[in-house]
């Protein structure tokens, strides 16, 4: 399916998808509250979640989910804008199993809380670590060298 066909197909699956233009792959932005229903709706067409990225934009966070279909080979990027003070989004670890580890990583490094996650703990950092290392405002006078 090319981009346009995919757009039409998504319009049948989702109530009101918002498309972002200009990227390599078809990109939709969603409200974090709709993520669970969106994920369930597109799970059948996009069975392979290959990348979960959190981005700190200083004013807000963006969660980026890269999805591919292993049968039709079309790719979709889903973005969700999260609040900077209380970043939280529904987990999709029950929908795509791989998300469990990727979400733990995002929690560990960015402090994004994934609600209903079965085992939301630090993954790389020690349990008593303070702060979220990959945030832009993270300061660590000991381990980081200012360039």
């Amino acid at each position: 399916m090319n981009k346009e066909e995919l757009k039409e197909h998504l319009a049948t699956l989702l109530p009101s998808p918002t498309f972002e233009e200009g990227a390599e792959w078809l990109t939709i932005t969603i409200d974090p509250a709709e993520w669970e229903s969106t994920a369930k709706a597109i799970r059948k067409d996009f069975d392979y979640l290959f990348c979960v990225t959190a981005v700190d934009w200083r004013t807000h966070f963006t969660m980026v989910y890269h999805l591919t279909s292993t049968t039709h080979r079309h790719t979709l990027v889903v973005k969700a804008k999260l609040d900077h003070e209380n970043p939280a989004i529904r987990t999709v670890s029950d929908i795509w199993r791989t998300a469990e580890f990727h979400e733990r990583e995002a929690f560990d490094l960015f402090g994004v809380v994934f609600t209903d996650h079965p085992d939301l703990r630090r993954l790389f950092m020690t349990d008593e670590w303070n702060g979220w290392p990959l945030r832009k405002d993270y300061e660590d006078p000991v381990n980081m060298i200012k360039l």
Partner: peptide
């Protein structure tokens, strides 16, 4: 996978590496 988010500068704004071992280990 290499995912670069650029703000137009000389350094990436955010870079994400999708490493195969990480996902394979989760299984």
């Amino acid at each position: 996978g290499v995912y670069i988010i650029s703000e137009g500068g000389t350094t990436p704004y955010r870079i994400k590496f999708r490493s195969p071992g990480f996902s394979n280990l989760s299984a």
